[in-house]
Design a protein around this nucleic acid. Structure first.
Length: 684
RNA sequence: GGUGGCAUAGCUCAGUUGGUUAGAGCGACGGAAUCAUAAUCCGUAGGUCCGGGGUUCGAGUCCCUGUGCCACUACCA
């Protein structure tokens, strides 16, 4: 049989913050499980990923945290790598898109695709923020919706009326970063003409008969609806330089260079293992299966843009064989969101819980067909009643039994009963079933199958009741324990892709030599543990998680949200303190000339003024006596709020108010710049 | 607004091209057992398959429609 050759990738995490369970559940754990399984079956498999380190969001994130983009991505590359280590994700190489060879390769893609006529140049108007010195992407602009006049509409879509917005038509646009008003500027960009690939993409997609239906439907529809050119350059100074002299100030759009990271990560891997050309064995070999694990949000890029890019350049690179996209994994019903306090701190998490518990929990509830949830209760349940009670306890009960009654050696298997052979048959069946699940990325079903086998073990142990046969029929008892040991070995093997550390522990407890992953899947499953083999020492595989511990976690989560809610409420009241433009317009201000002024008797602060507004004159009582004497103020042109509801001060009616700046009770009247301006002129 | 998806037991989810009486795990309840991390095993209860209409001998499954939720909507990483 030909050896399978597989290249597995996981979506490149964006180096702008830590990743969470959602990412793990969508793109990393399923890929790791698949990879570990395939490695054991003897496949020639390489698994790569790396941080995606370019784009606007990086520069903005860096600015927000007060360091350079380079420092920013260095920091998050480390943070993210560490998280993967804790989850025991077994990359062959975890790279970064800031590597020089990546830049070179991305530029090569651009140049070749352009030379082949798939990239065009267009000049368009775009909003530009002078203060931030950058063109604003749609989502970095907000303003008033031109259709429904709702405020705080995003540059691309109005949250209130749902209509699509051309950011150039947005009323009162503001830069989301600095709040300044952007100007309209012309800019030139290069567009990847995706439409030219429609036919080839459709033909390619037609060959993918075994893809997940949700993935395939989504992409076919997208192509059917017509593909438009997509800008693949940006005005910025962080990222891969556009290899054109006329585009000095431009960088490649991060989504253009990111998937190329899969190739460059493989190149780096080859370099690291001392065979710099080895990457070509995969990328140029039509027999290599290229499998991209991603979340559903990345589908358009991996199934349309990226294949089009490969088709458009000159190298004979392979196209994706499968793109098992997962849905989203939420936290207790809502998306993970660090900014709103709705998240699980991963560092804290691993101080209390172990890697395999969470790997199993995520696998068993993976978002394969629809969005799924992580809940603390579910986590506790998976750990306690499945891993500890069903799996852990089964291993423990037969090992203790062997230690107590068979000198910790594998007892003899002879004169098997129906129950014994049937059980051995079950091992075979279930391990074949789980192979299917692993091959087809059905992580959820695979997790279930592990428990199924452990259940078979428990049932069998109960049915055979070796604690009884030990006294009545020692041969039958030996046979039972032997069979349990075979189940234990099978459990170690089939659970390895999901819970590798535990699988190794079981392996060691069975006294089996070598690392479990160095064994061949099929061979190891077919080889029973020999009679007389010395077993290792039993130890507890999974500790129970107490109710109180989980209650604490839930409380912590909800208190973070409560705090966030309070913050939001505060922000909201601050927002309601803001007045709308219309409210502002309702204040009528005019230029008035002070014609008379006299002190109000018995008052320290008040002056009584007559102010000429052109058409009419009004009386204003104003508290400026400490700063202005009556004779100083006569003849001055000042700004007056003329539609104020009249009020009586010290018994004297005041029909408006003067505007003055107040600095520590020192007042300075606001006057007009040009003294010739006619009285009564409106201020706006 | 457009496109796509989802809605099944208290909870989390399976249900292949339409085909007997709609399944599993957890939780609940009852029982058995004592080798084991008080773990296990057996049994019981629980569903108008989101509402309405249609096609069909037959619909959880196909079509239409209503409602609710989710994603995408392309210079958004």
């Amino acid at each position: 049989m030909n050896q399978e050759k597989i290249l597995v990738t996981s979506a490149l995490p964006y180096a702008n913050g830590p990743i969470h369970f959602g990412h793990i559940a969508g793109a990393y754990l399923p890929a790791d499980i698949f990879t570990r399984y395939k490695r054991m079956t003897g496949a020639d498999i390489v698994y790569v990923s790396g941080t995606d380190e370019h784009g606007f969001a990086i520069t903005i994130g860096a600015q927000a945290e007060g360091h350079s983009p380079q420092e920013h991505v260095d920091k998050y590359n480390k943070v993210i790598s560490n998280i993967f280590k804790q989850f025991n994700i077994s990359f062959d190489n975890f790279s970064r898109t800031s590597m020089p060879h990546h830049h070179k390769l991305a530029q090569q893609f651009f140049t070749q695709i352009r030379n082949n006529g798939y990239i065009s140049k267009k000049t368009t108007d775009q909003l530009f923020c002078e203060k931030c010195n950058m063109f604003l992407a749609d989502r970095y602009v907000y303003g008033t919706c031109p259709d429904c006049d709702a405020e705080n509409a995003r540059g691309d879509e109005c949250g209130a009326c749902g209509s699509w917005i051309d950011p150039l038509k947005l009323k009162q646009p503001h830069c989301k970063v600095c709040n300044a008003t952007p100007t309209v500027k012309q800019t030139t960009h290069w567009f990847l003409e995706l439409g030219k690939f429609s036919k080839d993409l459709t033909a390619w997609l037609d060959t993918k008969t075994d893809w997940k239906p949700n993935v395939k439907n989504f992409i076919s529809k997208m192509i059917e609806n017509g593909l438009e050119g997509r800008a693949i350059t940006r005005d910025m100074d962080w990222g891969v330089k556009v290899p054109l002299s006329e585009a000095e100030a431009k960088r490649l759009y991060v989504w253009f260079d990111a998937p190329i990271g899969y190739v460059s990560a493989t190149m780096e891997w080859a370099e690291k293992i001392g065979q710099p050309d080895k990457w070509k064995d995969y990328w140029y070999d039509k027999n290599t299966q290229l499998v991209h694990f991603i979340g559903k949000d990345n589908l358009p890029f991996h199934c349309v843009v990226w294949p089009a890019m490969i088709m458009g350049q000159d190298e004979d690179f392979i196209l994706p064989s499968d793109v098992p996209a997962n849905e989203f994994y939420n936290l207790e019903g809502k998306p993970f969101s660090k900014s709103s306090g709705w998240y699980v701190d991963i560092e804290d998490f691993f101080k209390t819980y172990n890697t395999d518990s969470i790997r199993y929990c995520i696998a068993a509830g993976a978002p394969e067909t629809k969005d799924a949830d992580f809940t603390w209760k579910d986590f506790q349940g998976r750990n306690n009643s499945e891993l500890a009670d069903i799996l852990g306890n089964f291993i423990n009960r037969f090992l203790k039994f062997s230690a107590n009654y068979f000198e910790n050696k594998v007892p003899e298997y002879c004169n098997p009963s129906n129950a014994d052979t049937k059980t051995l048959e079950s091992i075979k069946e279930l391990s074949q079933t789980i192979s299917q699940h692993y091959s087809h990325f059905h992580v959820r079903k695979a997790a279930f199958t592990i428990m199924e086998l452990a259940r078979v073990g428990n049932r069998y142990f109960d049915e055979k009741a070796p604690w009884k046969s030990r006294k009545t029929n020692i041969q039958d008892c030996a046979c039972t324990i032997n069979t349990c040991i075979q189940i234990g070995k099978a459990l170690a093997i089939i659970s390895y892709p999901i819970i590798p550390t535990t699988a190794q522990k079981i392996w060691d407890m069975l006294g089996l030599p070598d690392k479990i992953e160095n064994n061949n899947w099929t061979e190891a499953l077919q080889t029973p543990v020999a009679t007389g083999h010395q077993l290792g020492n039993a130890e507890v595989l999974f500790a129970k998680i107490e109710d109180a511990t989980i209650a604490k976690e839930e409380e912590k989560l909800h208190s973070m949200v409560a705090k966030d809610k309070a913050d939001n409420a505060k922000e909201k009241t601050e927002k309601t303190n803001l007045i709308t433009f219309d409210q502002f317009l309702s204040v009528k201000m005019q230029v008035g000339e002070v014609t008379q002024a006299e002190a109000v008797k018995k008052s320290k602060k008040l002056l009584k003024l007559q102010v000429n507004l052109g058409q009419k004159s009004i009386q204003i009582v104003s508290g400026i006596k400490e700063s202005y004497q009556p004779q100083d103020i006569i003849g001055k042109k000042v700004i007056v709020v003329s539609n104020l509801k009249p009020a009586k001060l010290m018994g004297i009616e005041s029909q408006g108010m003067l505007l003055a700046a107040n600095d520590n009770n020192k007042l300075s009247l606001i006057t007009v710049d040009n003294p010739e301006i006619s009285t009564g002129s409106e201020v706006s």
